[in-house]
Design a binder for these strands. Structure first.
Lengths: 145, 145
DNA sequence: ATCAATAATTAGAATAATTCCATTTTACTG
DNA sequence: CAGTAAAATGGAATTATTCTAATTATTGAT
């Protein structure tokens, strides 16, 4: 059973854009594909460099524009660590992040239903959260990934 | 039973500075007092404005320097929301933050031992966290504080 | 108290990430 | 394929923060 995973991505992209009456330009398609094709946490600048392999003349402003669009469409997520440059994340499932202080690498930490429930349970009555961010910093003893 | 809370702060400041062989300058003392005297989450610029009531000639660079020192000494904490300017927090107990999308106000959410334990439990084997940040964004229906 | 040594403050320049702006190019509709 | 609205582009502008070099303050020893 082999299927083209990027066909699914393409469908998701087109339908999300159509919903907001936005156009599937080659820049948006390319930025989206680049993010989906590697499960890491690139900055806008990383993305610019990767995208330029296919679209050598794309500008940084356009990369920022595309990223904003993709985030608005909930096709990719934004991650911020302190005030270092924003990173973008293809993982749409609820998860936390772990930043290794030694290498700077960022890892996704998956969260099960139970964890998410206990997370949201810390909010007192009267607080309605639309979203949350949980991030850890520290060192990783086992180096996988 | 009345006591001078700022006497305690002063002691904490002096002893923390001495531990690192740093000098208790009037700028550091003033920045620290300003942060401790109001339980909110000011930016460096907010702090500059407040401190200038007492030290009219203090510079923004000095405010940044003082804040860095205070954070290093673990006398105040830094909070970041997305990429807006860093905020500083007098609350040293482990807690989460909630940002109201409507007003921009930031609220401390206290965490009991049990919550902290379940938070740290999301980390798989091999991850050692030195610290974590948990923040929520949403709306606050009951307006206290 | 005075002095030297060292640390801290200062103003302004420099930097980094991101956004804005005015113009050109592209995509959709008829 | 022509007209219109949206998007891309390059460069300037902005924001938060850090750096730099010169001045000033604090400390410890006389």
């Amino acid at each position: 059973m082999t299927y083209d995973i990027s066909e699914n991505h393409k469908r998701a992209l087109y339908s999300a854009l159509r919903k907001k009456e936005l156009r599937p330009t080659k820049q948006r398609i390319c930025v989206y594909n680049i993010i989906m094709s590697k499960k890491d946490h690139p900055t806008a600048d990383d993305i610019l460099n990767r995208v330029r392999k296919n679209l050598p003349t794309i500008s940084l402003a356009t990369v920022y524009n595309c990223l904003e669009t993709l985030v608005d469409c909930e096709l990719v997520r934004q991650v911020n660590f302190d005030r270092s440059s924003t990173r973008f994340c293809p993982n749409l499932t609820p998860h936390a992040h772990f930043k290794c202080s030694e290498t700077g690498n960022i890892f996704d930490i998956s969260l099960d239903e139970e964890s998410i429930r206990s997370l949201k349970a810390v909010l007192p009555k009267g607080y309605k959260a639309d979203n949350f961010e949980l991030s850890f910093a520290g060192s990783k003893t086992i180096s996988s990934n």
